[in-house]
Structures are given as structure tokens and as C-alpha cells.
């Protein structure tokens, strides 16, 4: 079980090494970094790693943090089942 890699995204098990390599190769935005590596695409919705992914992007591209949120949020912001989502509800 020993693993010397530093995991950044726990949900998708994306390592710091992979993220830095990708960010340096493509000098890309946080969103593209996410899409290329899957960091932030797991069940937690990026709550645990989004700040880390953003900081990797900034450090590798020398950009300052933008005021717009770099990694967008998408509903549902908590995992829910199809049955809850599909319920016909009367308000």
C-alpha cells in the first residue's frame, strides 16, 4: 500500500507530479488542467482539491488568481440519486 506519490485529487487519484507536468506542458487554465487530468471530477465536486489545482495552475503559468472562479461549480453540488433528482414534486 506504500505510495510515494503526492495525491492531489483524492477522488480520482491524480498526483501532484501529473498535474505539474500537465500544467507545465500546456500552460493551460485550471479548467483545462482538470479536463486533461480528471482532478476535481470526482464525487466531492472538487471541494478537497480545487484550491490546490488552482494554485498549481497559477504557479505554473505565473498568472494571478482571477476574480471569476476558475473551476466552475455545477449543480447538483451534493451527490444525489436519480430517484431524488427525478421525483415529481409539488411545491
Amino acid at each position: 500500500m506504500r505510495d510515494h506519490k503526492t495525491i492531489i485529487c483524492r477522488c480520482e487519484e491524480v498526483s501532484l507530479e501529473d498535474l505539474v507536468r500537465t500544467a507545465e506542458s500546456y500552460r493551460c487554465s485550471s479548467r483545462e488542467l482538470k479536463l486533461r487530468t480528471r482532478a476535481g471530477m470526482g464525487q466531492c465536486g472538487g471541494r478537497t482539491c480545487r484550491a490546490l489545482v488552482d494554485s498549481i495552475t497559477q504557479k505554473c503559468t505565473n498568472d494571478s488568481t482571477p476574480h471569476d472562479i476558475p473551476l466552475g461549480y455545477q449543480a447538483p453540488i451534493r451527490p444525489i440519486t436519480f430517484s431524488i433528482m427525478g421525483e415529481k414534486k409539488d411545491e
Binding site: M1, C44, R47, T48, P79
Partner: peptide, 17 residues
């Protein structure tokens, strides 16, 4: 996918671990 073991991490519903 990887089978690596996990326990509680954030304890307040954020991390899903």
C-alpha cells in the same frame, strides 16, 4: 478503481471519503 483504502477525512460531509 485503485482499491486504496480510505477512512474519514473531513467529518463534515465535504470530502465524500
Amino acid at each position: 478503481e485503485t482499491g486504496k483504502l480510505r477512512g474519514i477525512y473531513c467529518n463534515i460531509g465535504h470530502c465524500m471519503e
